[in-house]
Amino acid sequence: MKALHIALLVMVLGASLPLPAAAQSPVRVLACEPEWAALAREIGGSDVIVHSATHGRQDAHYIRARPSLLAKVRRADILFCSGAELEVGWLPVLLQRGARNVVQPGQPGHIMAADHVEVLERPEVIDRSLGDIHPGGNPHVHLDPRNIVILAKVLANRLVHMDPSNVNAYHDRLASFQARWSDAMAGWRERAERLHGMEVIVYHKAWPYLLNWSGLERVAALERVSGIPPAAQHLAQVVESARNSGAKVIIRAPFEPVDASNWLSEKTAIPVVELPFTVGGHPEVQDLFSLFDVTLTLLEEVHDRL
């Protein structure tokens, strides 16, 4: 019995040991998704410490409110997420239990990307039978490169607010990023024009921003309702519409199940392409620039094959 007493005491004491206070600590950014972590690295450089709650092969909608994330929210100066209820399954718990004031909604350390850009697919009808829908619209806003530059500026402003002493560094990195991004975007736009009107089948409704920006045409979705795995009858319908349409490719994100898309590919002889979806979703995608480069390259490969 004594042993238990002592173990408890040690735990309580160990947990409450004061930490040495750092003098001028860097701004801590907790990104919910890797794309926002990548953007924070572009703008924050060496003045920030960036963590991503999810990695490139994870579906940010379904992660657990892990204890390590709770610890990270507790220390974060800026929380940078997609918003539009993408993180609704775990972020509210972390915010409430981590109880970090500066990253709460409405505070300067709270950035939800969907609050700053035009959101697509706002549902007109909200009913659970339609699956796990997002009343706030589609949250995957990062796949439109025009949105990235908007958020770069939002983030830079917040970083300056948190860390005014490094204002010049943030402004310089922002200017550099904006210049490089607009150059890159001009190139991507030219490449996207070649793909314009290409018909695609998607798994989850993860792609509207990419499709909308690049001009690809979605002809079918493998998941009839979002958040509920496809059922046999629906797949039969998808096979029908896939055959009738001129779909050239089935697009899949790294975290989406392989079986349904592979099955459809076998039935219809339409190739499957796994696109990066986010930073880290493909071995060659380590930043936001390569995210769009690789995505377009992969689509061009299929496009040119046919």
Binding site: L120, R146, N157, R189, H196, N212, W213
Partner: peptide, 24 residues
């Protein structure tokens, strides 16, 4: 800033043949 960027993007889109963002 956000509005400016959106405006700039819309203008750029108007010049490009790629579809512009739907005006929801």
């Amino acid at each position: 800033t956000a509005l400016e960027a959106q405006l700039a993007a819309i203008k750029a889109e108007a010049r490009s043949p790629v579809r512009k963002a739907p005006a929801t």
